[in-house]
């Protein structure tokens, strides 16, 4: 069953900034329970695409469907509520509140008690080896720890699909392994991922389907082994 249904469909979306076209008539479908990779050179529109999906930007054209429901133009907090989680290229940790409060932020409207939520938060912290850090302030964490916190923070609200923007940038190999493990584990639970990364080894290892963007346009799509051999991709990455 899993892997056959489309959880997210992006249809012909475009986003312009003044005269610049950051995303140009982009379309793709993401199958449920898979890891979907988006790669491309700097400034090719990867982050902008994620911003359109989770409501930070309203695409100028095109439509986005989540489980068949049209979501473009919904405010970000509603996009989150329907099950789309997002991490950022530069982690957006709340700096001057505690790690625990950071983790509670996504579940403030949950009907569950504070005790239950805190227990859940501790489980997540434990799973990434950060249990004893719950009282630290966000700003007291290292860059890699911030990335981990950001990941487990969106897990708190149990999203169906996780948009990860450069989760491996500046992360130590050991932590990276932890990330891999986490992603595998979550996939087994049926979660879907969109992974944006410059770390091609990781993308090839984790993703089932990859699209390549260049100057806002999709120039290739396929399975990892197809992308590796694609001439246009090699060109886009190695320069013309």
């Amino acid at each position: 069953m899993r892997g056959n249904s489309v959880i997210l469909e992006v249809k012909d979306i475009s986003k312009h900034f003044g005269g610049l076209t950051a995303v140009n008539r982009l379309s793709f479908e993401v199958q449920e329970g898979t890891v979907f990779g988006i790669i491309g050179p700097n400034g090719s529109g990867k982050t902008t695409s994620l911003n359109c999906i989770n409501g930070l930007f309203r695409p100028d054209e095109g439509r986005i469907f989540f489980r068949g429901r049209e979501i473009q133009g919904l405010p970000p907090h509603q996009v989150a509520k329907i099950g789309i989680g997002r991490t950022f290229q530069v982690p957006k940790i709340f700096k001057r509140i505690s790690v625990m409060e950071n983790l509670l932020a996504p579940v403030l409207s949950s009907p569950r008690t504070d005790q239950e939520l805190k227990a859940k938060a501790r489980e997540h912290l434990h799973s990434v080896g950060m249990l004893e850090m719950e009282d630290r302030l966000g700003e007291e964490l290292s860059g890699g720890q911030q990335k981990l916190l950001e990941l487990v923070r969106i897990l708190m609200f149990d999203p169906q699909i996780l948009l990860l923007d450069e989760p491996f940038a500046g992360v130590h190999p050991t932590l990276k392994t932890l990330f891999y493990k986490k992603i595998h584990e979550l996939r087994k639970q049926g979660k879907t991922f969109i992974l944006v990364s410059h770390d091609l080894t990781s993308v090839y290892a984790l993703c089932q389907q990859i699209i390549v963007l260049d100057q806002g346009e999709k120039i290739a799509q396929g399975r990892p082994e197809e992308i590796k051999r694609n001439e246009r991709v090699i060109e886009a990455y190695l320069g013309r």
């Binding site: 989770n54 930070l56 405010p75 907090h77 709340f94 932020a105 403030l108 969106i154």
Partner: peptide, 9 residues
């Protein structure tokens, strides 16, 4: 922005 993305109204 981060608050919104986490579902905070």
């Amino acid at each position: 922005e981060a608050a919104q993305v986490l579902g905070v109204d």
